[in-house]
Design a protein around this nucleic acid. Structure first.
Lengths: 160, 160
DNA sequence: GAATTAATTTAGGTTGCCCTATATATAAAG
DNA sequence: CTTTATATATAGGGCAACCTAAATTAATTC
C-alpha cells in the first residue's frame, strides 16, 4: 500500500486548503497543484478507494482520520525541509518549492538528520558564529577562519 | 527539450559504467538502474533520438559529446548532494541513495547553496567546532553552547 | 423559476516508464 | 562448425498522471 508522491501532494494540499478555507473544493486543489480539475477528480476517487479522503460528488473533498494523519506527517516533513533550506540561505520561495520536491521518497534517516540540523541551529543560544561565517563565505568565497594570525595582523596594520 | 529524471539517471549510469568498464552494455545499465534490459533498449532509442547517445544494436551504448556534458553536470550534482548529506551525518549508503533522488529537479539556486555549504565546510582550516557540536547534539540532543558559564562552573566543580 | 454562468464530472486519449514473453543475434563450448 | 548459453531486441501490455472536450449539476442573476 505504497503511497505515490503525487498522492501525498494531494493530501497535503487538501489539508492546507481545509485549514485555510474550511472545505477543499476541486477547483482549489487543482489551482494549488497546477493541474486540471479532471485530474483532481481522478485522484479524489483513487484516494477515496484507499480510505484516505471522503469524496461525494459535487460536495468537496475532506480527509479521513487516516488521511489526515498521513497529510500531517507529509506537511511536517515539508516544514522541516523548508526551514532547513532557509538556514542554508536558499531564498524562501525556492526553499518552499524545493521542499515540495524533496519531501517525498527521502529515507527516514535523511529526514531525521535534516530535522536534527534544524533543531541544532534553532537551539543555539545565540546566532551561531559559523552561520555568520557561512554567510560571508557565500558572499566572498572566503572562509573567515582561513585568516590566520598573520593575516589578522596584516588587517590590523591596515587599520592604522 | 526538458530531460526527464529517468533520462538523467540513464545518462549518469552510462557515464559511470563507461568510466569503469570502457563500454556500457545493456545488461550493465539494467543492473545499475534496477530495470529490465528491454527498458534500457527503449530508453537507449529515446536518448539516441535526442542525440545524447550513440546506440547501435548489439554493440553497447556510448555518450555523445552533448550527452556526456549533461551526464557530467548530473554526476557533479550527485556528488555535491552526497557530500552534503554526509556532512549532515547521513550514513554513506543512504546519502548516496538519497542523492540519486534529490539530484533531479531541485532549483539551481538550491543546488548552488548546497555546493557552497560543502565548499564552506571543506575550506575550513580545522575540523569545524560547530560540526563537533552538531555531532554531540545528534547523540545527546543537547546543544553544547547551551551550557553557559554557570553550567561550566558546575561541571568544573564536579571534576574535583 | 427560467436562463445564464460556473463548477464538476465523465469519456476518451497521450506520454513516460516499466513489464513479460518471444524472437533473434552473438559468444562460448563441444 | 554446430550446439548451447547468454545478451539483446521486438511486440504487446499495464499503470500513474496528466490532458481536452463534452456532458451534467449547482449557483447566480434576471
Amino acid at each position: 500500500m505504497e503511497l505515490s508522491r503525487k498522492a501525498e501532494d494531494y493530501l497535503e494540499a487538501i489539508l492546507n486548503i481545509t485549514a485555510a478555507k474550511g472545505r477543499a473544493r476541486v477547483k482549489d486543489i487543482a489551482q494549488a497543484l497546477n493541474v486540471k480539475p479532471s485530474s483532481v477528480v481522478e485522484m479524489a476517487n483513487r484516494l477515496s478507494d484507499m480510505g484516505l479522503v471522503d469524496y461525494r460528488k459535487y460536495d468537496g473533498i475532506s480527509l479521513t482520520d487516516k488521511g489526515e494523519g498521513i497529510a500531517k506527517v507529509v506537511k511536517d516533513r515539508h516544514e522541516t525541509i523548508r526551514a532547513f533550506l532557509e538556514i542554508l540561505r536558499v531564498p524562501p520561495r525556492i526553499a518552499n518549492k524545493d521542499a515540495c520536491i524533496m519531501e517525498h521518497e527521502l529515507e527516514p534517516e535523511t529526514i531525521e538528520q535534516l530535522r536534527k540540523f534544524v533543531r541544532f541551529v534553532r537551539s543555539a543560544p545565540d546566532y551561531p558564529q559559523w552561520l555568520q561565517h557561512f554567510e560571508s563565505f557565500c558572499k566572498t568565497g572566503i572562509h573567515p577562519c582561513e585568516l590566520d594570525n598573520r593575516n589578522i595582523a596584516m588587517l590590523l596594520e591596515e587599520e592604522d
